[in-house]
C-alpha cells in the first residue's frame, strides 16, 4: 500500500505503477458533468478556474447531504468515461490526478502519458464507506448546482487503485491483449 498526498508531486506520480493500491490524503476537488460544462466556458474565455489546479486531484463524485456530525453523507465515485472529453482541458490546466469509476478511453490513456498524470479507481457502490475517509468538505464554486457544485474535500487515507499510471500503463493491459488475441483468432 502506497501513501500519497494531494496535490501530487512529480516524484509521487513517477513512483506509481498501474495496479498499485494507494491511500490518498490531502485536498481533492469533486467534479461532475454540470461543473465540467461551466469550467469549459471559463476555459474558452481564458479565465482562471475557481480552485487551484496545479498538480491537483479531482474526484468524479457528488456528495449526498451531510448527517449530523459528518462533513457530508456519502461520496461514491461516478462513471469517469462520461467526462473523457473534458480531460484535455483539465490536464492543460495542471490537474494531474483523477479519481473515478470504470474504464477510460484510449485517448485519455494517451493524454495521461503525455502529461504524466494518473487515473485512480475507487470502489463503486461504496459511497457511505468512502465518506469515512473525508475529514472536511466545503463547496468552493458553482453552488447553484447543489450536490454537483465543486467541493473542496480533505481526505485522509482514502483507498484507491492506480488504474492508469503516468507512463500510460493500465490495469487492463493484459485483459485487452487477450481480447485482441481472441479477435485475431476469429
Amino acid at each position: 500500500m502506497k501513501l500519497i498526498k494531494s496535490p501530487l508531486e512529480a516524484k509521487d506520480i513517477f513512483n506509481l505503477i498501474a495496479g498499485d493500491k494507494v491511500l490518498i490524503s490531502g485536498t481533492v476537488y469533486t467534479l461532475r458533468d454540470s461543473a465540467h460544462k461551466l469550467l469549459l466556458q471559463l476555459f474558452k474565455e481564458g479565465k482562471d478556474f475557481p480552485f487551484p489546479t496545479q498538480n491537483a486531484v479531482i474526484y468524479y463524485a457528488a456528495p449526498t447531504p451531510p448527517k449530523a456530525g459528518h462533513p457530508l453523507g456519502s461520496l461514491g465515485p461516478t462513471t469517469a468515461s462520461r467526462m473523457d472529453v473534458y480531460v484535455p482541458m483539465l490536464l492543460e490546466k495542471g490537474i494531474r490526478g483523477m479519481i473515478g469509476k470504470g474504464k477510460r478511453s484510449d485517448e485519455v490513456r494517451e493524454l495521461l502519458k503525455q502529461y504524466k498524470a494518473v487515473y485512480f479507481l475507487a470502489a463503486g457502490g461504496a459511497g457511505a464507506y468512502l465518506a469515512q475517509f473525508v475529514k472536511d468538505a466545503k463547496p468552493v464554486a458553482f453552488q447553484e448546482l447543489g450536490p454537483e457544485a465543486i467541493y473542496e474535500v480533505q481526505l485522509e487515507g482514502f483507498p484507491a487503485i492506480v488504474a492508469i499510471d503516468g507512463e500510460g500503463r493500465s490495469i487492463w493491459d493484459e485483459e485487452e491483449e487477450k481480447e485482441k488475441e481472441n479477435k485475431d483468432k476469429i
Binding site: 461514491g76 469509476k101 470504470g102 474504464k103 479507481l121 475507487a122 470502489a123 463503486g124 457502490g125 461504496a126 459511497g127 457511505a128 464507506y129 487503485i161 488504474a163 490495469i171 487492463w172
Partner: peptide, 19 residues
C-alpha cells in the same frame, strides 16, 4: 460489513471485475 443495495452492489461488482 459494508452495505450494498441492488444498485450499489452492481457498481461494486463492476469495481471488483475491473480492479
Amino acid at each position: 460489513k459494508i452495505e450494498f443495495c441492488e444498485h450499489c452492489f452492481l457498481d461494486y461488482l463492476e469495481f471488483l471485475i475491473l480492479s
